[in-house]
Amino acid sequence: MIVLDKVSKRYGDFQVLTDCSTQVARSEVVVVCGPSGSGKSTLIKTVNGLEPFQGGTITVDGIDVGDPKTDLTRLRARIGMVFQNFELFPHMSVVQNIRVAQIKVLKRPEAEAHQKALALLDRVGLGEQAEKFPSQLSGGQQQRVAIARALAMDPIAMLFDEPTSALDPEMINEVLDVMQELAAEGMTMMVVTHEMGFARRVADRVIFMDEGRIVEDAETDQFFGTPRSDRAQLFLSKILHH
């Protein structure tokens, strides 16, 4: 479904990504972790072309992301993305947030888009909040709306960029639960996160990044059981023992 082959990227002189190669198969859940500044957020943003890259290729569902002829706008409409800071549109109500791209991008009739929005809100447990504005919701609720907004586009895959990093601890689980359900339903997912409990429970594979390189790419059990690289071991020992 998603194939990265030797992806490299730099800002000026600064090499952000070096030769990153991996694959995400249909219905697979892959967690990307690593210390801050390791390039994991940049990597996930190259998948839907939000971050341009200079070397290597990325294909999503057979479409070449780096090809200048590719209609990125159309491709993005088919890949859902959830951001660290939610990025709900503050001037629109919750239901409008979920409707707007369905109507403007997919050209769905308003009534259909509205029904779909309400159904998805129910599904993430926020059926009552449809007419509120994002600022009136808690962080956890906002992130669940953001997930519903992405799902409304009927995506073929979902990208999560640190979806729980901006949340207070007591709200993290409500978001992870929604993500876990999604995984159980067979959604293809790529998730940048520090939540190792989630990775252990839900992920099929774990990718560990450091200094712009993919250092480790392993089955979940193997990653947590016997990580091969020293750096991954060190990272795990720090993150699991506090």
């Binding site: 491709l75 993005r76 990025e87 549109f89 707007v100 791209a101 586009m153």
Partner: peptide, 27 residues
């Protein structure tokens, strides 16, 4: 307007004019 808002609109498949007209300019 925070750059994340533009990224979110782009990630939803909105083109330049939709991003400007529906997301950035109203804010």
């Amino acid at each position: 307007v925070r750059s994340g808002q533009v990224a979110a609109a782009r990630a939803l498949g909105m083109n330049y004019w939709q991003t400007m007209g529906d997301v950035v300019l109203p804010q």
